[in-house]
Design a protein around this nucleic acid. Structure first.
Lengths: 166, 166
DNA sequence: TATTGTTATACTCTATAACTATA
DNA sequence: TATAGTTATAGAGTATAACAATA
């Protein structure tokens, strides 16, 4: 399959937005990158995560901690194996995370009823109370970051993203 | 502002998809996480990047290398400062990357015409030829990963993602 | 034999402070 | 004084191999 060579750099009329704007940097043509879903999804995710880190710092939760705690809260008795599978994490990277949450008194480890190898994870009342607040903060921050979207567009975006990774 | 407490774990009818499926893991309820744009955008991005790493490995390009090379190709003479600004990179992390691309003969560094401090980056013919192939490969892989989307949905998704981070 | 959880470890990515050369 | 590029380095994130206990 042939393809046209690299598009010409458009010498005539490049997108210029620096007209009389004091210390702006010369803009760059990223037209091609903007056609890539991976590029745009990553940039959007990082933009949201940046604010997430700020707002959730008072709870001592980073994105992965938050995802794990939320999943434990909504699935009492869930195992590490299940968390790894559903959140796409690797077992060795979950160990320290779980230990940290336990030492903070946010979760408890109980023997699994049917499988002696596994350990059931449960949120403590303290952990549950923290996550009610944390989830509320996360939801608020998300609405701020997606303020340019209508509720319908927001719903559409969530559904389309899930069509990619699920 | 008050909020309802953590939703009950729905004891009656949890989403079970493991009916008579040999070695499937008990599924987990991630309903809440799926309402978060940051979570879904990150999962989608990582899903695409996973295949990107495989397919672009023969070119010796990772996502950031690819973004930088593509931007240099489409913007001859662009500076490191401009790359950092438009791709959201930090200057120290770009240094080694640029040196690597130069030592591979993919780009050249030329003195900037107007600013003695800056260096203009240019793709060599070898670099341009590589990127024509690499961009084609990237575009193909993206279409595979978004195969569940119609062209209209794909266009919508790109536009909505840009509304978040731009 | 296969799986859960763990340890140790290496590799990559990202971030900060400080320096130089030029504007 | 401010900016472009660089250096050194620390921290976080992600990866693989190998092991013990249980199925």
């Amino acid at each position: 399959m042939m393809q046209a060579p690299m598009p010409p750099p458009k010498k005539g009329r490049a997108p210029k937005a620096e007209l009389a704007s004091g210390s702006a940097i010369d803009p760059v043509d990223t037209t091609y990158l903007k056609t890539l879903m991976g590029y745009n999804a990553r940039r959007a995710a990082l933009s949201i995560i940046e604010l997430f880190l700020e707002r959730l710092a008072p709870y001592g939760l980073k994105p992965v901690d938050f995802s794990v705690m939320s999943t434990i809260c909504h699935n009492p008795g869930v195992t590490s194996r299940q968390l790894c599978s559903s959140l796409n994490l690797l077992p060795p990277n979950l160990v320290g995370l779980i230990q940290s949450l336990e030492s903070r008194g946010l979760i408890e480890r109980k023997p699994h009823p049917h499988d002696g190898r596994a350990v059931g994870l449960h949120a403590t009342p303290k952990g549950q109370a923290l996550m009610v607040q944390a989830e509320q903060t996360a939801t608020e921050l998300e609405l701020e970051k997606t303020a340019k979207l209508t509720p319908a567009q927001r719903k559409t975006l969530l559904a389309l993203l899930q069509k990619i990774y699920l």
